[in-house]
Design a protein around this nucleic acid. Structure first.
Lengths: 108, 108
DNA sequence: TTAATACTTAGCTATTGACCTAAGTATTAA
DNA sequence: TTAATACTTAGGTCAATAGCTAAGTATTAA
C-alpha cells in the first residue's frame, strides 16, 4: 500500500465536505470502527465508506482491518501540515504589515 | 452587504480548489487587483471571478471596487478561525494520548 | 468623444462528486 | 455448518462545479 503524497489542497478539499469534516472531528476524539463511525450519519454504508476513502487517500485518516472490522484513526501529522501552511500564510500577511509600519515610521 | 457567516467546512471547501488555493497564497503576500491576480492563471476572466466570488463568500477574501478596478485582500481573521479549529482537533487527539499514558503509568 | 480597460452578466457544456440499491465476500457467533 | 455481521464491489442517478464564449456596463486614457 503506497503512501500517496497528497497535496495540501486535496486535504482541504477533503475537509470541505460536512460529512468528512464531522468524521475528522469524531476521530480526533478517538479511533473507531467503520460501523461505529457511520452510525450517527444517515447515509448508506457504501456512501459512507467512500468518504472514508477520500480521507484516507489524502492522508488525514489511516485504517487497518483485523478480522472483519476496520478501525480508523486520525493522522495527526496531516493536521500539522495544514497548520503549518496556515501559519505560513498568516506570517506572510503579518510581515507585510510590519514592513508597512516601518515605512510609515521612517516617513515621520 | 451582509457578512454571510460561512461555516468552516465551506472555508475548507473553498481552499480545496487548486486555483483558489493559489489565489490565497498570492493574496497572503499582498493585496491585488482582479486582473493582476488573474494574469498567471490560464483561465477566462469570468471563470476566475467565480473563484474570487467563492473566496469572498466564505470570508477568506474581501474586495472593494474603486473606479473600474477591484482590489482584493486576504482576511486574516478567517485564517485564524481555521487555525483555531485545527489546533482544537490536535489538542483533542493529544489529550487522549496523555490520558492513555497516565493509564499505563497506573498499571505499573 | 472615442477607444481601451477592467470587470460583469448571461447562458451553455462537460465532468465530478454525493448519493443510492443490489449483490458479493470474509469473519465470527450460534 | 448455518446465520449474522462488517464491510466491499458494481453500477447507476442527479445536482453541483469548473470551465467556456459572447455580449454587456462603467471608468479612464487619448
Amino acid at each position: 500500500m503506497p503512501n500517496y503524497q497528497a497535496s495540501l489542497d486535496r486535504v482541504f478539499w477533503a475537509l470541505g465536505d460536512p460529512t468528512r469534516f464531522a468524521i475528522v472531528e469524531q476521530l480526533a476524539r478517538q479511533p473507531a470502527s467503520v460501523s461505529d463511525l457511520a452510525r450517527p450519519f444517515n447515509l448508506s454504508l457504501p456512501t459512507f465508506m467512500q468518504h472514508l476513502g477520500v480521507l484516507e487517500e489524502c492522508g488525514l485518516v489511516t485504517s487497518e482491518k483485523t478480522g472483519r472490522v476496520r478501525m480508523c484513526s486520525l493522522n495527526k501529522n496531516k493536521l500539522e501540515e495544514v497548520d503549518a501552511w496556515i501559519s505560513a500564510q498568516k506570517r506572510l500577511w503579518t510581515t507585510r504589515f510590519d514592513a508597512l509600519d516601518k515605512l510609515l515610521e521612517n516617513d515621520k
